[in-house]
Amino acid sequence: MAKNPWAAPRPSLRFIHVWRRNLLVWRKLAIPSMLGNLADPLLYMFGLGYGLGRMLEDVGGMSYIAFLAAGVVCSSTMMSASFEAMYSAFSRMHMQKTWDAILNAPLTLDDVLFGELAWAASKSFLSGSAVLIVAAVLGLIPSPWALAVIPLIFLTGLAFAGLGLIMTALSPSYDFFMYYFTLCVTPMMLLCGVFFPLAELPQPAQWLAQLLPLTHAVALARPLVNGELPPSWLIHIAVLAAYAGMSAYIALALTRRRLLQ
C-alpha cells in the first residue's frame, strides 16, 4: 500500500517557505557568496577572452571576448545551480537534517523539493545575471535584446537544478557529485559552444551536443545579446523546458523513494 513514488507531484504554495529559508541563510553571506560566484566566470572571461582573444581575429562575427560572454553567462548559471542543488541541498537533506525538521511541520516532501528547486534556480539566476551585468558594463552586450536572456537564465537554472537534485537523491555522500561534474558538467562546458562555436566539433559530437541542455541555452543566449532571435528559438526553449520538467519529476520521485519509505 506504500505510496507510489512516481505519483504526480502535489506541491503546495508552502514551498515558498523553504525557498525563503534558504534566502535568509544566503542573505547572511550574500556579498562574499556573490563575489565567489563571479570570480570563476570572470576569470574565464578575462583570462581566455583577452589572452586567447588577442590571437583570434573574430569568432562568429564578434570579438572573442564578446563571443565568450554569452557562453559564460550560461555556464556560470549551470555551475551555480548544480552546486546549490547538489552540495548545499545534500547538506540540508543528509547532514543537517533540515528537511526532516521541515517535514514535521505541515509541509510535504513535494513542497521541500519544489522549494529547493526554486531556490537553486533563483541562486543561479543571480549568478548568471551578475555575469551578464558585468559583460554589459564592459560594453560586450551590444543589444537591449539581451534583456530576453534574463528569463532564459532562470529556465536554464531550473533545468540544472532539477538535474542536480536527481544526483542528490541518488548520492550516498559528497564524493558522488564528482562523477557528475567529471562526466556531465565538464564535458558540457567543452561541447556546448561556451568556448568555441559548435561547428568546430566533428559531426557526431555536434549531434551529441544537441542532446545537452547547455547547448540550447548558449544557442539562444548568444544571438540574443547581439540582438537576433535565432529561427530555432522555440526548439531551444522546448528542450530546456523539457529538461526542467522531466528532471524535476524524476528528482521528486527518487527523493520520495529515498526519504518516505
Binding site: Q96, D100, A101, I102, A105, P106
Partner: peptide, 25 residues
C-alpha cells in the same frame, strides 16, 4: 520533538523559532 536534534545550524536561536513558525503559515 524528534529523536535526533535537527535544529537549523545556519540560524540563531531566535531565527530557528521564527523560520520554523513560518512553515506553519
Amino acid at each position: 520533538v524528534p529523536q535526533f536534534d535537527n535544529l537549523d545550524p545556519d540560524f540563531t536561536i531566535r531565527e530557528n523559532l521564527r523560520v520554523f513558525g513560518r512553515y506553519f503559515d
